[in-house]
Amino acid sequence: MKENRIWIQQNTTDIDLALELVEMGVPKSDIILGLHPPYKRPHTGYGVA
């Protein structure tokens, strides 16, 4: 958690963590895919920081 958003910095599993969170009711705008560089984040459909 950082600034009331969930940051996914790394995922070394077969599970799509972001998708799991969305299915649990977390808005996509509250999930930041920190494993992608900032210039790619606007194209992910998830939050941008």
Rank of each mutant, 00 (worst) to 15 (best):
P37G: 11
V22R: 01
I15Y: 05
G25C: 04
K28G: 04
T12G: 13
V48C: 07
E20N: 12
I32P: 01
I15F: 09
D16Q: 01
Q9S: 10
K28P: 04
E3S: 11
G47E: 13
G34P: 03
R5L: 03
L35E: 07
M24T: 08
I8G: 01
A49F: 14
I31N: 00
W7Y: 10
H43L: 14
R5Q: 05
I31A: 00
S29G: 14
R41F: 07
N4P: 04
Y39W: 14
L33P: 00
L19M: 12
Y39M: 10
T13V: 06
R41G: 01
Q9L: 14
N11G: 13
K2A: 06
L33K: 01
I6D: 00
E20D: 11
T12F: 11
I31L: 12
V26Y: 07
V26H: 04
L17C: 09
M24D: 05
N4Q: 14
Y39I: 11
P37L: 11
P38C: 12
G25R: 03
R41I: 15
A49D: 14
H43Y: 14
M24W: 15
L21D: 00
T12L: 12
M24R: 13
E20H: 06
E20V: 13
E3W: 13
T13L: 11
T12R: 08
I32V: 07
L35T: 05
M1D: 08
H43D: 13
D16F: 00
Q10V: 11
N4V: 03
T13M: 06
R5W: 03
G47F: 00
H43R: 11
P38R: 02
I32A: 02
Q10I: 09
N4Y: 08
P42E: 04
A18K: 02
W7D: 05
D16N: 03
G34K: 01
L19S: 08
E23G: 09
L21W: 00
Y39E: 10
R41K: 06
M1N: 13
L33S: 02
L17T: 12
S29H: 08
D16H: 02
E20I: 10
Q10T: 08
K28M: 03
M1R: 08
Y46C: 03
V48G: 07
P27R: 05
G34R: 01
M24S: 08
E23M: 15
R5H: 09
T44K: 01
Y39L: 11
Y39A: 11
P42K: 03
I6M: 04
A49I: 10
E23V: 11
T13G: 09
R5Y: 07
P37N: 08
I15V: 15
K40M: 06
L35F: 10
D30E: 12
M24K: 06
I8E: 02
D16W: 02
